[in-house]
Structures are given as C-alpha cells and as structure tokens.
Amino acid sequence: MMTNLFSSFDPCTNFSLSLNWLSSTIIITMIPFLYWMTPSRLTMMWLMLLMKLHWEFKILITKNKFKGTTLIFTSLLIFILMNNFMGLFPYIFTASSHLNFALYLSIPLWLSFMIFGWTMNTIHMLAHLVPQGAPKILLPFLVIIESISNLIRPGTLAIRLTANMIAGHLLITLLSNSGPSLSMPYLTFLMSAQILLLILESAVAMIQSYVFSILVTLYSSEIN
C-alpha cells in the first residue's frame, strides 16, 4: 500500500539524484536507425508517420515562407507521445504528468512566439487584441481580456497535459490498491477494468500529445 496516492508522481527518489527524470531520455533508445542500405519496415513506418504529421501541421501554418517549421511541432508531438507511453510501463516515472515538464515545453515556445510577433509584426499583434466589429465602448475591456487569455496560454497548455495524464494514472492506482482484498470473481473483473483503462490511457497519451502540438501550432500561426 502506498502512503501517499500522489507519490507515484513525485520525481524524487531514495537516491541523492532524481533518477526518475531519466525516463524522459529512455525514448532516445527507441528511435529507429538505418542499419542497412535499404530502410527496414520499421524505419519506413516511422518515415510515413513523420510525413503524415508534416502535412497535418503544414495545413495549419498559413505562410509558406516558414519552411521547416513543421519539424519543430512534429518533434514536439513525438517527444510528448513517447513520454506519455513510457509512463504506461510499470515502475517508470511519467515525466509528462509533472507540471514542471509541461511548463518547460510550453513557456519557451510561447515566449519565442511572442518575442517574434511583437518584434516583427507589431501592428498585427496590436490589431489581434481587438476583435473585428466590436463596439467601441467595450474595446478597453476586450483588450484586457485578450491580453489575459494570451498570458495564460502556456499555463493552460501545461495544466491540460498534466491533469489528463495524472487522472488516468490515479484511477489505475486506486483500482490496483484494492486488488489484494478482493476475491477471485471481483479480481477478474478488476483486471478486465485495468486492461480497458490501459487502452483508454493509450488513447489519451496520443490525443494529448496531438492536442498540445496542434495548439502550439495554432498559436504560432496567429503571429504571422
């Protein structure tokens, strides 16, 4: 039995170093490499996935002059997706369930977009604070609301990813703790429920990485 329900999301360990953060680097060993002159089936599947993501993000980027920008968002999606999947394995710390991890991804990207937008497209950024066709009497309030909604974007991105990853893991942990006290018929039902929850968490891992990357792409397209 765990002394604290949230201890599985604690990055600290019994050692002097926070070794749980190494789970985010394990995915490096899972990247396929070209060992042969002819790419393997695994490599071809990987390339097909990257090309599919490239065309998906290219639709959202309005200006064609920013070529190669999709590589940033594709790499971001793959990185978050791998970290989400690593957390589904036993005894592996889910790095994406920690708020610091999500903030380290969202804040630098959002800050770079803001610096680029206000430096290169200042008039466009000022015009974006005022919705088209809004009454003049409401303009001061709309500017304040748009500014606040813009400032909280990195926080909402981080909280959305962290909360969705924690919720499913907490439910699986709660059901697992009740296993030793159950009889065989209830234990069979519990195992079936755990398998269904793992399938659901796999879908959540893919959806949340996709949502995070798509929202970052949409934020970047607003500064052009």
Results as ranks from 00 to 15, higher is better:
Arg153Leu: 13
Met30Tyr: 06
Leu174His: 08
Ala134Gly: 08
Ser7Arg: 05
Ser176Val: 05
Cys12Ile: 10
Leu157Arg: 01
Thr43Leu: 13
Gly87Tyr: 00
Ser97Met: 04
Ile207Gln: 07
Cys12Ser: 11
Thr29Val: 07
Asn64Gly: 15
Phe15Lys: 13
Phe189Thr: 14
Met206Glu: 03
Ala167Asn: 09
Asn100Lys: 11
Ile166Thr: 09
Thr43Trp: 07
Lys52His: 08
Ser192Thr: 13
Met37His: 05
Met125Lys: 08
Pro140Ala: 13
Ser220Phe: 13
Thr217Asn: 08
Thr173Ser: 13
Phe66Asp: 15
Ile80Thr: 03
Pro135Ile: 06
Ser209Pro: 03
Ala102Gly: 03
Leu17Pro: 00
Phe101His: 09
Trp110His: 12
Ile28Pro: 01
Thr94Leu: 06
Ser16Phe: 02
Met1Asp: 06
Asn224Gln: 15
Phe89Met: 14
Ala95Val: 14
Met82Leu: 14
Ile137Thr: 04
Phe85Tyr: 11
Leu50Ser: 07
Met114Asp: 10
Met191Pro: 00
Leu81Val: 00
Thr94Ala: 11
Ala102Asp: 10
Leu198Ile: 10
Ser183Gln: 14
Cys12Val: 10
Thr119Trp: 10
Lys63Tyr: 02
Met44Lys: 07
Leu198Phe: 10
Ser209Ala: 15
Trp36Ala: 07
Ile92Gly: 00
Ile195Asp: 14
Leu190Asn: 15
Thr94Phe: 02
Thr25Gln: 10
Ile123Glu: 15
Asn121Trp: 02
Leu129Gly: 03
Trp118Ala: 07
Phe189Met: 14
Ser7Phe: 00
Ser213Ala: 15
Leu174Asp: 03
Thr162Glu: 07
Ser149Arg: 14
Leu171Tyr: 05
Ser181Ala: 13
Asn121Phe: 13
Thr70Gly: 05
Met37Pro: 02
Asn84Ala: 04
Ile148Asp: 00
Trp46Asp: 05
Ile214Phe: 11
Phe73Gln: 02
Ile223Thr: 08
Thr43Arg: 06
Val143Thr: 07
Ala158Asp: 05
Ile26Val: 09
Ala158Cys: 10
Leu138His: 01
Ser7Ala: 10
Ile31His: 07
Ile207Pro: 00
Leu171Trp: 04
Asn64Lys: 15
Ser202Leu: 14
Glu222Tyr: 09
Gly68Leu: 03
Leu49Gly: 06
Ser97Thr: 02
Leu17Val: 08
Thr62Leu: 12
Ile27Asp: 09
Ile123Lys: 15
Pro140Gly: 11
Thr69Val: 11
Val211Gly: 00
Ser192Asp: 12
Ser75Gln: 04
Leu187Gly: 06
Pro154Leu: 08
Asn100Thr: 12
Ala205Leu: 00
Asn100Gly: 14
Ser8Tyr: 03
Leu19Thr: 10
Phe33Asn: 02
Phe79Arg: 04
Ile92Tyr: 02
His128Gln: 14
Gly179Asp: 13
Met48Gln: 08
Met30Ala: 12
Asn121Tyr: 11
Tyr210Gln: 07
Trp55Thr: 06
Phe9Gln: 01
Leu139His: 06
Thr173Met: 08
Gln194Ser: 09
Ile107Asp: 01
Leu105Met: 09
Gly155Gln: 00
His54Ile: 13
Leu103Phe: 03
Ile27Asn: 06
Met165His: 09
Met45Asn: 09
Ile72Glu: 03
Gly155Pro: 01
Phe93Lys: 04
Glu56His: 15
Ser220Gln: 09
Asn84Phe: 01
Thr69Tyr: 03
Glu56Arg: 15
Phe101Ala: 06
Asn164Tyr: 10
Leu139Asp: 01
Ser178Glu: 12
